[in-house]
Each structure stands twice: as structure tokens, then as C-alpha cells.
């Protein structure tokens, strides 16, 4: 059972107080988007054995969504950060690359 740091209220939070929200940094495609883009937005999700960036909500606490970069294998958490960002912060990306030099951020810069 994970323990994640909520960047909003500053608490280390037990997984039972959190709600998992799946892959982070999805780009929404609305009316006018192509079928391919809409399909990828709605249905296509990463399921990596390794580094993953996820959405979590401090559901039983402050109610805020935050994002977490962690390894699904070693359970190392590279950092949690505000949901109002388009990509993992530079320091977290650096921490990830220290463990996995081949890792690159594929989303928006």
C-alpha cells in the first residue's frame, strides 16, 4: 500500500485516503478532433513496467488532485506535484533519469 506526499496539504498520505486517477497529462480532444486523436484520448493508456506518471486525488483529505511520478517496479516515488502542469517538473525528470537514463518525457514540454 503506497504512501504519497500530497503537495497541497503537505501530508504523507496513506493510499486508503487517496483515489487513483490513471495516467496523467492527457490532452483532451473535443469536438472537431480526429477519430484517432479522440480514440487515444479516451481509450489508449500507458501501462508501463517501470516509470509511470499518474493522477491521484487526496480524496479523504484536502480533495485536491495531484500528480505522481513513480516506478511501478521498484515503487520508488520520484516526486509528486501540482496537477496544474503540462509535464513533470525538471527536478523530477532529472531524478527519473538518474535511475533510468533512457527515460524520456513523451508528452508536452
Amino acid at each position: 500500500m503506497l504512501m504519497l506526499h500530497c503537495p497541497y496539504c503537505g501530508q504523507d498520505v496513506d493510499e486508503t485516503d487517496l483515489h487513483a486517477g490513471g495516467e496523467a497529462h492527457l490532452k483532451r480532444f473535443g469536438p472537431g478532433s480526429s477519430d484517432e486523436d479522440f480514440e487515444s484520448y479516451l481509450f489508449v493508456r500507458k501501462n508501463p513496467k517501470g516509470i509511470h506518471v499518474e493522477r491521484w486525488r487526496h480524496a479523504y483529505g484536502c480533495g485536491k488532485w495531484f500528480l505522481a511520478a513513480r516506478s511501478t517496479v521498484t515503487l520508488e516515488v520520484f516526486g509528486t506535484y501540482a496537477a496544474q502542469t503540462k509535464s513533470p517538473p525538471a527536478d523530477i525528470q532529472e531524478k527519473i533519469r538518474a535511475v533510468d537514463p533512457d527515460w524520456t518525457w513523451e508528452g508536452e514540454a
Binding site: 486517477g21 483532451r28 485536491k64 496544474q84
Partner: peptide
């Protein structure tokens, strides 16, 4: 409530 908060916090912040 959670659905609204999700959109407000994560998409249209």
C-alpha cells in the same frame, strides 16, 4: 462533486 472538481483542478484550472 468529484467530477466537477476534477475538471476544474486538472483541465480548466
Amino acid at each position: 462533486h468529484g467530477w466537477m472538481e476534477d475538471w476544474l483542478q486538472c483541465e480548466w484550472w
